[in-house]
């Protein structure tokens, strides 16, 4: 006891590779000898699957549904090299309140002093999507995560979600909330992708922490129910994840981002769309000429 647990939140639009990336970061950190907990904040409750051989674990809210009192230990499972896995869980789509579910689950662990008890070095919250309501903002509030990273591809919808998150961070920033560490650029395979992301982080005054390419190695590992770190420890992709984890671990100074407002965002994306169309046209011409 006594050391300060570093708490990090990673946000990203659904389907962007958020859980994959987060799980690889967690795996890389345990591999490096740290005590790590990954806390999935998504009603689907599958954030930690690849840390546990593809296996689902009962969520905090599953336990709450069944019992009048919940011992937080019942919701904590160990996976790859002892990494602690927790899933907040949540309701079926279309009913109840997923946001409240996250509030409840996070409070439960905090009240039972779990992070201190497990003597953790890192807690990594893997949070769904953009900040749609108060519940999804819980990890960026005072006293929970200090640093937030967002995962985004060069896809406009993913960037919208990132921009939304920046707005949430801005809201809480003057009230002791978390600050932005930067963007994890995912599925970046072309220079063009890279340019889009670079331009976005420049406009919003943040930084790219790492460029992660799309890779078949990741898909193969996932099919085995494993992280890339576990399934292909010597692959180039594993090296990228380790570098990313190291950067996140070493990261100390986060900032308040400057999100684009709705009009700016539209203008920005329209500008890039024009270039995109131009590139497509050129490539079509190439195909036609061939």
């Amino acid at each position: 006891m006594g050391k300060k647990t570093k708490q990090i939140a990673i946000y990203g639009k659904g389907g962007i590779g958020k859980s994959t990336t987060t799980s690889n970061i967690s795996a890389a950190l345990v591999e490096a000898g740290y005590k790590v907990m990954q806390f999935g904040c998504d009603p689907k409750a599958d954030s930690t699957n690849t840390l546990r051989g593809g296996e689902y674990i009962p969520s905090v809210l599953d336990l709450l549904r069944e019992n009048s009192r919940v011992d937080a230990h019942d919701a904590i499972f160990q996976g790859f090299r002892g990494v602690y896995c927790v899933e907040a869980g949540g309701p079926q789509p279309g009913v109840g309140c997923a946001g409240r579910g996250i509030i409840t689950a996070v409070q439960l662990l905090k009240q039972q002093d779990i992070f201190e008890e497990l003597d953790l070095d890192y807690v990594i919250f893997d949070v769904l999507g953009d900040v749609v309501c108060g519940g999804f903002a819980v990890p960026v509030r005072e006293g929970i995560a200090e640093h937030v990273f967002t995962i985004s591809s060069a896809d406009f919808m993913a960037i919208y979600a990132a921009n939304n998150l920046f707005r949430g961070i801005q809201t809480y920033s003057n009230k002791g909330g978390a600050l932005l560490g930067g963007v994890i650029a995912n599925s970046i395979n072309t220079d063009f992708h890279r340019e889009i992301i670079d331009d976005f982080v420049e406009k919003t005054q943040t930084q790219v922490v790492e460029y992660v390419p799309r890779s078949l190695t990741v898909t193969q590992a996932e099919l085995q129910g494993k992280t890339t770190i576990e399934a292909a420890p010597h692959s180039e992709q594993a090296g990228i994840y380790r570098r990313l984890a190291k950067r996140i671990a070493g990261h100390t100074e986060s900032k308040v981002p400057s999100p684009l407002d709705a009009k700016e965002l539209r203008a920005w994306s329209a500008g890039w769309a024009d270039q995109l169309i131009e590139i497509e046209r050129r490539s079509e011409r190439l195909v036609a000429n061939a």
Partner: peptide
């Protein structure tokens, strides 16, 4: 209760 909030109360 919390259960009806999170999972719906129908």
């Amino acid at each position: 209760s919390e259960r009806e909030v999170v999972f719906g109360g129908a």
